[in-house]
């Protein structure tokens, strides 16, 4: 067991009537690469947003452990690098300006963030594009720039939300290679994906989320052993055989706005025929 870095204790997060996470608990040790696996709406993004302090839990708490002391998650934000689902780049700025902006907000001098950016951009084959405006970037280049932005200030933990989604094979491989490199350097990564084979390639611990509940937490081997299956895919299906939530997060809409919208929503009166019955 490595040194404890982050602890999620009995966290419940609700949006209206929907429980996005239910009494969820995990510990994250330093140097681990953890795969957060689950279908759409399983609660992966909610968990990542709780870890970087964007959401507050309704119940339970998320603590950051530094030098043996538990600290509030707000103190932890300086130590987190985040790659959100939407890359979130400013298209009128160059790739380097995007990276530098976030590094400055983390209080990191430009020279240090430049040195780190240059090092990782070589690994991602991005060094020649750092001074280009991101407006014309492909999805892959945007994703790589966002990853460099997350790394430039030297985070203790990296939260990656679907880092290879929409990437071509080569770019996805470069991203996975970089995660391996970070692991070798002792970095901690939480890697959210709904692609099990990718999690198998990258992560040494897998957390399976389903309907906001923790279904599994352990290594690949433990997953196969526990489910008595021969492949990770079978194991995943077995653990998540109950229906996924159909109901999405409730829209945050006011009383008047909701009724006004309903006024213009066409209602279809469907009468079942005998064949249907």
């Amino acid at each position: 067991m490595g040194q404890l870095l982050l602890s999620v204790k009995n966290v419940t997060k609700t949006f209206g009537t929907l429980n996005a996470l239910e009494e969820f608990s995990i510990d994250i040790e330093k140097g681990a690469v953890i795969g957060l696996v689950g279908s759409n709406g399983a609660g992966k993004t909610t968990l990542l947003r709780l870890l970087c302090g964007l959401y507050r839990p309704n119940l339970g708490n998320v603590v950051f452990v530094k030098d043996g002391d538990e600290k509030n998650i707000d103190k932890f934000r300086e130590a987190v690098g985040v790659l959100p689902e939407s890359t979130g780049l400013y298209h009128r700025l160059t790739a380097w300006e995007n990276i530098r902006y976030h590094s400055r907000l983390h209080g990191v001098p430009d020279s240090i963030s430049w040195e780190r950016t240059l090092r990782f951009s070589k690994a991602l084959s991005m060094s020649d594009d750092l001074m280009r405006h991101t407006r014309g970037f492909s999805r892959g280049m945007r994703q790589k720039t966002a990853l460099l932005r997350a790394l430039a200030h030297g985070p203790e933990i990296l939260l990656l939300d679907e880092p290879t989604a929409g990437l071509d094979v080569t770019s996805a491989r470069l991203v996975r290679k970089l995660v391996h490199q970070l692991k070798e350097e002792g970095g901690t990564v939480i890697y959210s994906t709904h692609n099990l084979s990718e999690a198998e390639k990258v992560c040494d611990r897998i957390i399976i989320l389903h309907n906001g509940q923790l279904r599994f937490d352990g290594s690949n081997e433990e997953l196969l052993l526990e489910t008595g299956t021969k492949s990770l895919e079978d194991a995943y299906v077995k653990l998540t055989s109950d229906d996924a939530r159909i109901k999405e997060k409730e829209e945050t809409e006011g009383w008047f706005a909701k009724r006004w919208r309903h006024l213009f929503t066409r209602k279809i009166n469907y009468t079942a025929t005998k064949e249907d019955e």
Binding site: L54, V82, P84, E85, S86, G88, L105, G107, A146
Partner: peptide, 13 residues
């Protein structure tokens, strides 16, 4: 709308 706010809100400010 452009989705840039999420990464900004993650910054330690």
């Amino acid at each position: 709308e452009r989705g840039t706010l999420e990464s900004l809100l993650c910054a330690p400010c």
